[in-house]
Design a protein around this nucleic acid. Sequence first.
DNA 1: CTGAAAGCGCTTACAG
DNA 2: CTGAAAGCGCTTACAG
Lengths: 335, 335
Amino acid sequence: MDINIKEVARKAGVSIATVSRVINGKEGYSDLTRQKVMRAIQDLNYKPNALARGLLNQKTQTLAIIFPQVSDMFTGRVLRGVEAAAHQENFSVIVCKTDGSHVRTMRHLELLAEKRVDGIVFASEILVKEYSDFIQRLKIPLVVLSGESDDPGIPCVRCDDQKASFTATSYLIGQGHTQIGMLYGGRKGKLDEITRVVGYHEALSHFHVPFDPHKVITSEGFGFQEGKTGAAQLLDRFPNLTAIFAASDEMAVGVIAAAYERGIRVPEQLSVVGYDDLPIAEMTTPPLTTIHQPLYKMGFKAASMLLDHIHGREDLFSSVVFPHTIIERGSVSRP
Amino acid sequence: MDINIKEVARKAGVSIATVSRVINGKEGYSDLTRQKVMRAIQDLNYKPNALARGLLNQKTQTLAIIFPQVSDMFTGRVLRGVEAAAHQENFSVIVCKTDGSHVRTMRHLELLAEKRVDGIVFASEILVKEYSDFIQRLKIPLVVLSGESDDPGIPCVRCDDQKASFTATSYLIGQGHTQIGMLYGGRKGKLDEITRVVGYHEALSHFHVPFDPHKVITSEGFGFQEGKTGAAQLLDRFPNLTAIFAASDEMAVGVIAAAYERGIRVPEQLSVVGYDDLPIAEMTTPPLTTIHQPLYKMGFKAASMLLDHIHGREDLFSSVVFPHTIIERGSVSRP
DNA sequence: CTGAAAGCGCTTACAG
DNA sequence: CTGAAAGCGCTTACAG
């Protein structure tokens, strides 16, 4: 990694300014010159130094994505979308995992600031004021993905959780269910502040099915274990339950496991609806009926918004809400 | 992002050299000076520019990981390990997805070269000569993870696939199985060139169980669908099969799904052993008995090797082989 | 304990 | 069509 533009210039018998012009496809040299330069670059295996270049034009061609310890599968999809959009324009993407820790988040932010990344996707964690203030003081473009933000002025890419929950619950009711439990796994709070629970509640009300807060169980995370434990509780408390709506696919898989352990057949005796439509949703037996969140597209969109802004193609302030759909597979039947 | 070391120096009433010393914790300034500088940094919200710094000392504090379109879960674990090791030393990690495409791989390599990353983890794809040549001409430290390399001189982190397959197959034989099928999903080739198949074969021979090449099915990928399709073929061809060893957990889940569709009960009528020990292995019904590959640790180790080399703590040439273990869960019973 | 100056590898007016 | 020179924001001998 030792040869630089000077050596290329010497070898080609031109000035470094000319080499630079050729590399960047600018105007102002003869065809012969171009050929000489190109050959020298080839011969020396020269790669322009992005650091030097970045220092000049204050651009790094780099995006960062920040996320907590989320489900691998969830993260994976979003990351793919971000990477795809970035790669299309020859941007690199730096990944930062925070484990939900404040300290780690700030440390990452500090590092990204020093590295002068061109944009940040903040994914599926709560964007507290300290973070957004930090980022905005640095004037780094920011998009929040699928998380909650304390600041409505920050552009955001997400699904309408409330509507999606409404859809899932209504679907179950449409199949004839009235004894429907719900499992949720995010930050604790009053039930009427959790959008997914609100959507569930609304659907029940809309169809005149009584709402029982005890049929909603919230736990720390969205994982398999939480789903399994939650379902066990629900099933013990309400033996006549015929359906459970889980707020993530992993939780839904946990429900299936809990049912299996109790000898309860899915879907004959218990219907299950998940949320996310991750790869596992197709792998369970029976395959999972679930709410599809277009995670790849959302990641792609978030990165595109950043890129559009960086290249001055578009301003960055509007949020975008992606439509959800319900994917019918095999985990729901009539009660 | 407009304030630089000069402004800090002016504000603190010192030279930029002194500011630099304070920032980098070098010697040579009074306590009073230090305080003045620190205050100026605070007040101005100054963040040193890593590009300028990198340009000087030829270091970017950045690692890259390159992988193809692999299973999300597989990738996720490795990535976590790499990220954890990197973050510990304040390194960032750039992710590059190649989709297994040669063009994309070269484009990524080109970008990484220009960005002057300090090291590269090449994960779970075949490192063809063109790639390794490219990287070595650039003198970027390289570690191959869990992939095959055409060049034995390149440091590598992996599991002993052959032994692991031997373990899995022996385990099944130990449980009393003799009719054992195998599913594999990597690059095509003669059976005796695929290490996992060789391990399977060895175990059979070792216990005097006849080997039938028709009981081994290889397909393009390691995914759920390939497992399901492969298992269907196997089950149709050999109705008296009592066990299947799948070369990935996703394939094993596919086996369970295929069995379920045919009304074959797992493990009562068919035992299944997987490979990887991904999160899904715990989520299936029944939970999957599988070979545990310490993917997180492997990712961590690969990054650590790079870091040790970068910091001159250790040379980079030895490969490391991680031990595998078999995790007994519920998908195997006696025939 | 501190500062002036060179230099890392580029790009970009400016002058010709 | 081409080159000399300034400058991006730092670090690091060197001199005091």
